[in-house]
Design a protein around this nucleic acid. Structure first.
Lengths: 164, 164
DNA sequence: TACTACTTTTAGAACGTTTTGAACGATTAT
DNA sequence: ATAATCGTTCAAAACGTTCTAAAAGTAGTA
């Protein structure tokens, strides 16, 4: 391949990797997607290995992860026994789905935690000292703020849907 | 402290840690903030060490990070030589500032990368084969989509500002 | 059945990141 | 002056995560 094109592509791949990494996604998976995203034809596992200079095992595992995300799908190439993969070009959709999933899951976990917290501090317990009762009040008030934040996240998700 | 209250608090701290961790933020820093957020009075470094059972050095370094984020500020307690810290209770503000910062920084980096990519593929180079020219076209079109994504992120930031 | 071409699994190596704890300097109390 | 109290720093250790390479597995083909 033209080496200028290849260098440019490398920069892209590296950059996307960093980007996703800094948002808590697996760097390599993002790079895998980037390679496929820039390709004008489906690539085989071997071609990806060659392009990224990593082990086959690594690609194999992480390609499957991308398939789960609906970010990549395998295509059949006539006359070849290999599996070929191509990127889902709807980047927006892929990302949004991923983000929404992450947010929803975390919000759920947080809700559960907050609920059980509330249960504890609401139980009237005559053994509590005044100090403790005051503390419980503080908790209650601060938790309320976190819940507001949660509903903000929900609103954001709704808006995001409209945007895409 | 009432052990039920303490257990509840521990769950909260753990949960917030996981939450932030899964979004690419440092888990411990988040836990540090959680401790201060739930406290009804400023805490000293020693008290935090005691509460979280971690080393002094660790708390020292990461408290400073939180101060940089405006998530925590130190307060002077009369009659004590120690530094005391209290959380900025405006969680929404803290988070939004952090998120906006992260997004803006990453968007900038991505723009730079895309620009240089575009420069390379736009230079008319007579040595390119038809194959390469076709590839360059593909790149151009796919990059455009990434840029749309970027502008989506900008819009999201604007909306976020209105929400808070 | 054996052969070939491929993918997946796996145990451990390599890696980056986080945490520790001892040493240090600076400040205040005795 | 000396001791005690604090916060900070930094090299080394601990840790979790990702990656590799080789073995095992699967499916087509003769």
């Amino acid at each position: 391949m033209n080496s200028k094109l290849e260098t440019a592509q490398d920069k892209f791949i590296e950059s996307i990797g960093k980007l996703c990494d800094s948002f808590g996604l697996n760097r390599f998976i993002a790079q895998l997607y980037a390679v496929l995203y820039l390709s004008d034809k489906p690539l085989s596992l071997d071609e990806i290995v060659e392009r990224l200079k990593v082990s086959k095992g690594n690609v194999s595992i992480n390609i499957r992860e991308l398939e789960n995300w609906n970010a990549v799908r395998s295509v059949w190439v006539k006359g070849s026994r290999k599996d070929y993969y191509e990127a889902n070009l709807d980047v927006k959709g892929v990302i949004l789905r991923k983000v929404r999933q992450a947010i929803q899951r975390r919000m759920g976990e947080t809700s559960d935690m907050i609920d059980s917290f509330k249960n504890i501090i609401k139980v009237p317990d005559e053994n509590w000292t005044d100090e403790e009762k005051k503390l419980a009040k503080t908790y209650e008030e601060r938790l309320k703020k976190i819940e507001e934040l949660k509903s903000l996240a929900s609103t954001a998700l709704l808006l995001a849907d409209k945007l895409v």
